[in-house]
Design a protein around this nucleic acid. Structure first.
Lengths: 343, 343
DNA sequence: ACCATAATTGACACCGGTGTCAATTGACGA
DNA sequence: TCGTCAATTGACACCGGTGTCAATTATGGT
């Protein structure tokens, strides 16, 4: 570790270290001459401010943390990417913390994590972002956070996608293909987004004047395995549904697997589609029709909101209505797992 | 932020802050009475040491970083999990940094990242761990690091799996099924592990007295897409191979997709297998036969090595030969994508 | 040229800990 | 009981920056 300190710069430039501090923080009231002189020395010596020293003095670190418990690997993956992009641009460090939603000591573990790292702010991924006792702890501790998901809990801002619209549009797409026996695999009941998506599904059927066959609505938990299980149940129903919409792609892939293992041809005998558009959709055969959620954009946006909040900066003017509301729309991506029903 | 400081504890306990420091660092030469008294106050006040203050004073932070550029999402996923497990146990924070292997300014970006975070040590994931100019920079900067991969570059320790043995065993398995026209999809040529795996494949054929048909050895890059491309080439050869072994699962899944899209039945007309045993293998249909690499264990081990190195502690006595050498063996997991050749 | 005012600059304490070394205390043998 | 030496403890500087406020210098008006 080389480490040129602010004192070295100050001595070399013949000014006080406070003046150097002013220069590196771009503060006003430094004469042009002085600023140039100091900058020259900084470049000459290759000075880099020590983030720990700064953090200590300002009582504000340059780190934020991503708290996740890994619902769908592909989802988390894309989210991370967007967040890291923003962090990189803003020179923020990103801590990762893997927690287990089911752990009885979760809140305490997270509290300890914060104490151990002094992360300034947190990004919460579902289902953590829906955990009220966690949000309470953060509020009490006065920790800044942004939730990924619908905006109706806690004191932090949130960024998410329009789940009900996504399900609505996907259901409409299936209806347009002339499916009528459409099954639905619910997401995890603890997650807000799950209920939104269900609402969109029901709304679409209702708008089409079709009743919802409750036997074709089964519980899932956003995991691959729960998709497999749900599909096994659904595909044993008579009459068998001609299309299954899963609340996320991870489960849709499970549905596809179940269909394969039962010898049911996709899409000829069964259309399958999901929501999210994770990379898995194009790795399975046939490729899955999905609603593309701009996951990386959402991650980027969440990180940007958090960082600006921490720095007390106002957000830049929103360019789109989506940036205004922090709720992003999905886009239908038709692939090979859906087609009109047989007959 | 509540923040009880060491001064508060010192005052309340009626001792100097240095003594409090001794207690929280478990230093010798503190009387039992004093230690108990201080501990009581610490618990009473809920004191937590400020890691930034410590880091500044000790010139050693409590953070390490994972540098990756995302070769196979499923692989990175599992690795992260193992690393985080260890970090959590050791009360270390883990920074994430996503880099692009192809970026011409990669080394500089990473240097800047280190300066921005003051991470004490790094874990390098292939292909970063094979990048000599990066290793040179880290050595020059005197940054501690552990490489994931074969041990033959740089000054850092490394943790990896026995790739040549894995490929050797998998090839033997295919030979035992009586396959003779076995194709191989190579990994990225820049990565050491790729050559190891190739070696094992060739060795197995040679040991069986079979020639290697060079037309059946094609280049891949460890990505899904490269697997698809490679398979398209291989499956147009006459005679067509009856089995394809890919250097990782991500590519094997690509091979499977290509087979599906060409209407080739797996495993009846074509056996497919990979190496790694990422979660994808059980999400595609049919489930892929693979060599299970203890990825999470490797991640855990890498983190443990790094942390102990940073703290100047010797590693605990190795329990297994694998822990001794830091090279882990794979285990054959037979699933549904392999069977004896038709005829 | 002179004074009021604003713009620059620096001295110094402080953020929350740790390292050094000297001062104090206690234990033990004579 | 006293001296010796080891065990305990604390005073103080320091890690690398920032905040406060006073001191200094520059600017402008008359």
């Amino acid at each position: 570790m080389s480490s040129v300190t602010i004192n070295d710069v100050a001595r070399q430039a013949g000014v006080s270290k406070k003046t150097v501090s002013r220069v590196i923080n771009n503060e006003a009231n430094v004469s042009v001459d002085t600023r140039d002189k100091v900058m020259a020395v900084i470049n000459e010596l290759g000075f880099k401010r020590n983030p720990l020293g700064m953090a200590l003095a300002k009582n504000r670190s340059l780190f934020i943390a991503l708290l996740a418990d890994n619902p769908s690997p592909g989802y988390l993956q894309k989210l991370q990417k967007g967040i890291l992009q923003c962090c990189s641009e803003e020179h923020m460090g990103l801590f990762l913390y893997d927690c287990s939603y089911r752990s009885p000591t979760l809140v305490h573990e997270i509290e300890e994590f914060i104490d151990n790292t002094l992360a300034d702010g947190l990004i919460l991924v579902p289902p953590l972002s829906d955990k009220q006792d966690l949000l309470d702890m953060l509020d009490r501790k006065n920790v800044c956070y942004i939730r990924i998901g619908p905006k109706d809990q806690g004191s932090g801002d949130s960024v998410g996608f329009n789940g009900s619209k996504a399900a609505f549009e996907m259901t409409n797409y299936l209806l347009q293909l002339r499916h009528t026996d459409i099954a639905f695999v619910l997401g995890h009941p603890d997650q807000q987004s799950s209920h939104r998506v269900e609402k969109g599904f029901r709304q679409a059927l209702q708008d089409a004047g079709l009743p919802v066959n409750e036997a074709l609505v089964v519980q899932g938990f956003y995991t691959y395995e729960s998709g497999v299980d749900a599909a096994r149940v659904l595909l044993s129903r008579t009459p068998r549904p001609t299309a299954i919409l899963a609340a996320n792609d991870e489960m849709a892939v499970g549905v596809l697997y179940a269909a394969h293992s039962l010898g049911i041809k996709v899409p000829d005998e069964l259309s399958i589609c999901g929501i999210d558009d994770i990379s898995l959709t194009t790795k399975v055969w046939p490729n899955l029709t999905s609603m593309r959620q701009p996951i990386a954009t959402i991650g980027y946006r969440a990180a940007l909101l958090l960082i600006n909040k921490l720095q007390g900066k106002a957000m830049p003017e929103p360019l789109t209505p989506e940036d205004q509301s922090n709720i992003y729309d999905c886009e239908l991506i038709v692939r090979d797992s859906t087609c009109p029903p047989a007959r």
